[in-house]
Simulated assay, not measured.
Amino acid sequence: MTKIIVLFLLALALIQIIKPLGWPGLKKRSDAWKLALGGLMVVVISIGMIALYQ
C-alpha cells in the first residue's frame, strides 16, 4: 500500500514540474518539493506503524 501512495505522489510531483496543478499551495513548478516531502512523511509513518504492530 505504501508503494502505491509513493508512486501516486511521485506522479503528481512529475506532473507538477511539467505543468503546475493549480491546487492551493501548488501554484508554481517549484512547489513539487511539497509533494515529495508528503510522500516521505507517509512512508516514515507507515514504516513506524508497521514496526509498532509487529
Rank of each mutant, 00 (worst) to 15 (best):
M41R: 01
I18L: 12
L26C: 09
I45K: 01
S30A: 06
L26F: 15
L37P: 00
L21N: 10
G39K: 10
P24E: 06
K27N: 12
P20Q: 06
I17F: 05
R29Y: 09
K28R: 13
W23R: 02
V43K: 09
V43T: 14
W33D: 08
Q16G: 07
R29G: 15
M41Q: 02
G38A: 15
L26D: 08
I18F: 11
I15L: 13
V42D: 06
Q16P: 12
P24T: 02
K28N: 14
I18Y: 14
D31C: 01
A32M: 04
L21K: 03
G25I: 04
I45Q: 02
A36W: 11
L40W: 12
S30Y: 07
A36S: 07
S30E: 13
A32V: 05
A32H: 14
A32T: 07
R29F: 04
G25R: 06
V42F: 15
I45M: 12
V42T: 13
W33R: 03
R29C: 05
R29Q: 15
Q16V: 08
L37N: 01
W23I: 07
I17G: 00
W23F: 15
I18Q: 05
K19Q: 10
L21F: 11
K28L: 07
W23E: 03
L26N: 09
L40M: 14
W33H: 12
V44E: 09
V42L: 09
A36F: 14
K19C: 03
Q16H: 10
L26E: 08
V42A: 15
G25F: 03
M41P: 00
A36R: 01
I15T: 09
L26S: 08
K19S: 11
I18D: 04
K28H: 11
K19M: 08
V43H: 08
Q16T: 09
M41S: 12
Q16I: 07
P20E: 05
K27I: 11
K28C: 02
P20N: 04
L21A: 07
K34M: 06
G22S: 04
L37T: 13
W33L: 02
V42H: 10
I45F: 12
P24W: 05
G39H: 10
K19V: 10
V44A: 15
K19Y: 09
G39P: 13
D31A: 03
L35T: 10
L35F: 10
L35C: 10
S30Q: 14
A36C: 11
W33E: 02
V42C: 12
K19T: 12
G25K: 04
L35G: 07
M41C: 08
R29H: 14
V44H: 01
L35I: 15
D31H: 12
G38W: 09
L21Y: 06
V44S: 08
V44W: 10
L40C: 09
D31V: 01
L26H: 08
V43I: 14
L35K: 11
L37W: 08
L37F: 13
I17R: 13
K34I: 12
K34D: 01
K34V: 08
I45A: 14
I18T: 10
K28Y: 11
I17Q: 09
K28E: 15
I15W: 11
P20A: 05
L21C: 03
R29P: 06
I15R: 13
R29S: 14
K28I: 00
K19N: 12
A36P: 00
I17E: 02
